[in-house]
């Protein structure tokens, strides 16, 4: 019942989680319109099912789970309507997943290159990477968020880092795996 809730509860939820959720979605999707839609959808779902959400430390992986699911939904919708949508360059983009050489020349800063590299990863690897290294979730929490086994999460994280290390845009950053991880990879 609406009237049984604290009127400021949704405001608190938004104020605490909107920015990290938005940035996570931006790293996963890239497109500003899709990011807005996905984050809105995520918060609507969170609000409607707020009574079922865990409390305390258990809340964070669930928030990201809903955000990641909303991003996946948005991406699926995009792929279904890709033929009917306006061209990508006509939309407001946070970052372009396919930048031109001129844009690369203009965006020489490291952050921009990292974002582009992340967006070039397969979708299944992007979420664990972003949740681990941006959201700071443990492998177990990521497993909850993406509904995969911890072992799967671990291997996807490894694969994501391996691909980033090979990305020519990040070559100058020295993203190669540490020695222990190289041994694991062999």
């Amino acid at each position: 019942m609406v009237t049984d809730t604290n009127p400021g509860e949704l405001e608190e939820l938004l104020q605490q989680w909107y920015t990290p959720a938005y940035r996570t979605a931006a790293l996963l999707l890239g497109d500003a319109v899709k990011v807005d839609d996905a984050v809105q959808e995520a918060f609507l779902r969170l609000w409607r099912f707020r009574d079922a959400l865990p409390e305390g430390d258990g809340l964070r992986p669930w928030i990201y789970r809903v955000v990641v699911n909303a991003c996946y939904s948005s991406a699926r919708t995009e792929s279904r309507h890709a033929g009917r949508r306006a061209p990508q360059d006509a939309l407001d983009s946070v970052v372009s997943s396919d930048p031109t050489p001129d844009e690369i020349a203009d965006q020489r800063d490291r952050a921009s290159l990292v974002r582009q590299a992340i967006l070039s990863l397969p979708a299944g690897l992007r979420a664990p990477l972003v949740l681990r290294y941006y959201a700071g979730l443990s492998e177990k929490e990521i497993a909850t968020a993406i509904r995969r086994r911890p072992g799967t999460v671990k291997s996807r994280l490894h694969e994501a880092r391996r691909l980033l290390a090979k990305d020519p845009r990040l070559a100058h950053l020295g993203l190669g795996l540490s020695s222990s991880r190289q041994e694991e990879a062999k």
Binding site: E11, L14, T19, L27, V114, R115, Y134
Partner: peptide
């Protein structure tokens, strides 16, 4: 690596939608 990804995320402009919606 985590610092690198976080830096990349935090250069995304602060979203104004939440404040504007509220």
């Amino acid at each position: 690596f985590s610092a690198l990804i976080t830096e990349a995320a935090e250069t995304i402009p602060e979203p104004t939608a939440a404040d504007a919606i509220l």
